[in-house]
Design a protein around this nucleic acid. Structure first.
Lengths: 361, 361
DNA sequence: CTGGAGTGCCAATGCGTATTGGCAGCACGC
DNA sequence: GCGTGCTGCCAATACGCATTGGCACTCCAG
């Protein structure tokens, strides 16, 4: 057979560059680049194009993304900065974003705020010519002005007039939780929220409060608790609530970790769930179905949230035109719309003690 | 003052390159590179060095990592490929690795196997000139031969004679679980393991079995269950076990998710824990403390595992010499040593029904 | 046959940094 | 005063790919 070609086959031994491909196809390097670059309808004769593609295939050519990044000034990578990886809700957001980014050919650089401050993460991301960053509830407003200059940014669950974002309808989450408890006849209602100042949590609380007030139910500060947004925090807050007189018959927790803690504390103290106390969480993390009793919670589509954030970010990256064409504009606006939430009624909530269930006639 | 310099201050407006720094310091670009590159003891006069550093500081110079990567043939980034981000154990591994990598100045590219096949992830990682990859129980042995050529690899919880790895003493994990149950007087013992063929799980099972056998306790296949390594899987397996006669008095689950499922299934069916049945898990994920009763489990230091994996990988990246000097060698061997495990006794295990506690006299 | 409009390709250059080799300049010995 | 050896710096080049501008060539109308 053809034993003339100097390095007959060399799959991945050292490194196949676009020059090798060009040489094998008998064209110049720029021509090979035209074919192998994205631009599908570049001015290249079909025969040439096919020769180049064949050569690339035979040599097992893989473009060097680093070189491409340098030349194009883009890295085909995006960063995602999260407050704390240990929060399962955050995790789902990351997973959703990773999936979308990865199938669009983008790499995902993971940055955990609990390991290093955000500004520092952003510094290294920019040094890598990152194409965009997803900021998940890390307090973007507090960042130094130039920390994000020249980067595409999409915020997750954090409103801003400087950057686009995706979110869920957090206020609505509070409302449906309140509606649920009201429908069950609860009138002595408590709330446990995080001590940190995160927008989504504030909105959940606000929706909850306003709905209770509208129904004429008191929301006294003695039944309002702040605690770290963890299971432990939920336990502590619940312990304190249970010592009150009158004891609340229902508690809404701003997230599921708090709620799981609350449930656990009840069980520890021998308070029966849901007959003595109803607990409602928010997020619908996977674990919420796995505790006993299963947690009634407001379901937030975390994975979908992450996926949408990634899609929105990609839209800004790939269509930097300003103003955007109408189609892009429409797509972005759809992605930015708050995601609906819904209540998932499970075993941790029930009619208030003494309340008469209203049965359909 | 000095109003001569053309762009007097320009913090981050467009992009400060090393050329700008060199110009400001009155030296050539290579000299600036010598100073700003790592090589601390390069041949540069102290006065020059300081001028360059001052200029860099004033201009807010940040090296472009992409360009540096291209020139040095390294990306200062490492990839981590995980089987499924939704598993909280995996998550802790990632968090540990991220922290170490990030403080060593390396970026972390996250790759979720459940979103895209490993080989494909590795392809894109190599295209990015990744410096190394962490493979967490993704079945490295089954990968095509050249998928990993030229990359530093460290395996997590997966033995291999081709690549170094970190692990926990999985067999010991099974042993301590068995010891615990034996000490509590259990003789009718069951096991729930994953259907997938993951080495650590196999070893946990083996350690468990061999300890039981050594104690003369039967391990009949009717009490051995395979199920997806999830909460649901644990529920299903437990349901089937509970229908047996005689009913097992204790179950060891190969991970905590299975165990949580098992506990939940017991509670659902009105089987009392731990008085009727003891359940022991493995991993000690955070959630295991938050279910009721709290889960007795074998604690695996996941975060530490991830951290060690990252350290080991960094050692290979930063000391590519072969053979390594003795200090490096010692450090690596220490990192490769299996991490010890320990049993954490909580509420889900107790004396077997009818077994007499042996009290210290 | 000539002029113009395309088409298809390539030479040259750039992206920002690292590295090599060598050229000045200085100090020192004799 | 001349060679020797050293220090401190820079010119040139490389990394792998993308992009610009223009040249050569074909095709067709005139």
């Amino acid at each position: 057979m053809s034993d003339v070609s100097p390095p007959p086959r060399n799959p991945g031994s050292s490194r196949v560059t676009i020059r090798d491909v060009a040489a094998r196809a008998g064209v110049s390097q720029p021509t090979a680049s035209l074919v192998l670059g994205k631009h599908p309808r570049a001015r290249v004769a079909t025969a040439t194009r096919e020769r180049v593609l064949a050569a690339a295939e035979e040599l097992g050519y893989r473009p060097n993304v680093v070189a491409r990044s340098l030349a194009r000034g883009r890295s085909f990578a995006l960063g995602i900065v999260v407050p704390d990886l240990r929060n399962p809700f955050v995790l789902d957001v990351v997973a959703g974003a990773e999936r979308v980014a990865s199938s669009a050919g983008y790499a995902v650089l993971l940055c955990d705020q609990s390991a290093r401050p955000v500004a520092s993460h952003l510094d290294t991301l920019r040094a890598r010519q990152i194409d965009g960053v997803l900021l998940d509830a890390v307090g973007a407003a507090a960042l130094p002005d130039d920390a994000l200059r020249g980067v595409n940014v999409v915020l997750i669950d954090e409103p801003s007039d400087r950057w686009p974002g995706v979110s869920t309808d957090a206020r609505q989450a509070g409302r449906v939780a309140a509606d649920h408890l009201l429908a069950l006849g609860h009138r002595t209602v408590a709330f446990i929220g995080p001590s940190s100042d995160v927008h989504a949590f504030r909105m959940r609380e606000r929706g909850f409060v306003e709905t209770l007030r509208a129904a004429g139910v008191a929301v006294p500060s003695e039944r309002w608790r702040r605690s770290a947004a963890t299971v432990r925090g939920g336990q502590a807050a619940m312990r304190s609530l249970l010592s009150q007189t009158p004891r609340p018959t229902a508690v809404f927790c701003a997230n599921d970790l708090l709620a799981i803690g609350a449930v656990k504390q009840c069980l520890t103290q021998g308070v029966a769930l849901p007959s003595d106390v109803s607990v409602v969480g928010c997020d619908d993390i996977e674990m919420s179905r796995f505790i006993t009793p299963e947690l009634t919670t407001v379901s937030i589509p975390a994975r979908e949230l992450g996926a949408r954030a990634a899609r929105l970010l990609l839209s800004y990256i790939e269509h930097p035109e300003d103003p955007p064409d109408s189609q892009t504009r429409a797509a972005r606006s759809a992605l930015s719309r708050p995601l609906p939430v819904r209540l998932v009624s499970r075993g941790s909530s029930a009619y208030a003690p003494g309340a008469t269930p209203v049965l359909p006639s």
